[in-house]
């Protein structure tokens, strides 16, 4: 069976750059750049992001400090480069874990009897009835505010949407003829799921992961902004906006720069996700 190989998304040359619209190309390039920053940002940073020097406080962008310094005299560019890790890596973790849990639960639901499936869907409903922010604040009082709590909270509110998505896809795949023929040859249910059903059901999950990373960075930064995520003085973009917000009049860059970086990140992942979706569904989407 061909389904031994990976999903159609990975099989097909979806990333053929030459035939891609400029905007999509820019989005993928930006995502690449962001991932590079996650990996090498600290190496590129010109200064120590935690080095406080009140004599250098609130310097506007210039030759010394390209993006200026904040109220404690820390270099904003260095802090932004360091901040890619907690914000983007944290979001990747949150979304990746959610997807993993979501798909696992959906697979189990597909193999389990009907009532288990029903119960799982009810649990999803409940989890989805808590807005992420609210869930996250609940978790942050329970476990104490930290980047880890923020990730746990995001996973807790996010896995059900992946479960729903994967469940729908798995159900479609289960009714296809090649799965039915595999059933007839008598493979075990475990093998059926891992070898035949899942590889052919996960395209839209991959696309969704890409799309959601953008949203996740927004939430991650938002949680830090209200003090439920990464704690100051750590170089996290949302926390940087929060501490910069008091100096909008005197040092606008301290709040504007990290916010703009968050926007760019969310934008890049949203556009890249859209481009991927358009390629896998073969349809122009919005």
């Amino acid at each position: 069976m061909t389904s031994m190989t990976t999903s159609a998304l990975l099989r097909r040359p979806v990333l053929r750059l030459r035939r891609m619209p400029k905007l999509d190309r820019a989005a993928f390039a930006m995502v690449g750049l962001l991932l590079l920053t996650v990996a090498f940002g600290p190496l590129l940073a010109p200064y120590d992001p935690y080095h406080v020097d009140l004599g250098q406080a609130m310097l506007p962008p210039g030759a010394e400090h390209w993006l200026g310094t904040d109220s404690s005299g820390r270099d904003v560019l260095s802090r932004v480069l360091y901040g890619a890790r907690p914000t983007i890596l944290g979001s990747l973790c949150a979304v990746g874990l959610s997807a993993l849990i979501g798909v696992t639960v959906a697979s189990l639901a597909a193999l389990a009897p009907r009532w288990v499936d029903d119960a799982i869907m009810r649990i999803c409903d409940i989890a989805l009835s808590l807005p992420i922010m609210v869930m996250a604040l609940g978790i942050s009082v329970a476990l104490g505010p930290s980047l880890r709590s923020a990730i746990i909270a995001m996973v807790l509110s996010w896995w059900p949407s992946f479960t729903r998505l994967a469940r729908a896809e798995i159900r479609t795949t289960m009714t296809s003829t090649y799965v039915e023929s595999a059933v007839i040859t008598g493979v075990s249910r475990w093998r059926l799921m891992t070898r035949h059903v899942l590889p052919n059901s996960l395209d839209s999950v991959y696309v969704q992961v890409t799309l959601e990373i953008g949203g996740a960075t927004l939430i991650m930064a938002g949680l830090s902004f209200i003090g439920a995520g990464a704690q100051p003085p750590s170089a996290e973009w949302g926390a940087m906006v929060e501490s910069g917000s008091r100096f909008l009049t005197s040092a606008w860059w301290t709040a504007v720069v990290p916010g703009a970086v968050i926007t760019l990140t969310a934008l890049a992942f949203a556009l890249a996700g859209d481009a991927l979706r358009a390629r896998t569904s073969g349809r122009e989407v919005m």
């Binding site: 953008g214 927004l218 906006v241 504007v256 926007t263 934008l267």
Partner: peptide, 15 residues
Amino acid sequence: AIAGGALPLFWLGLI
């Protein structure tokens, strides 16, 4: 619409 969806609310509010 894509750009609007990428704006962090709290930051937009501040600005």
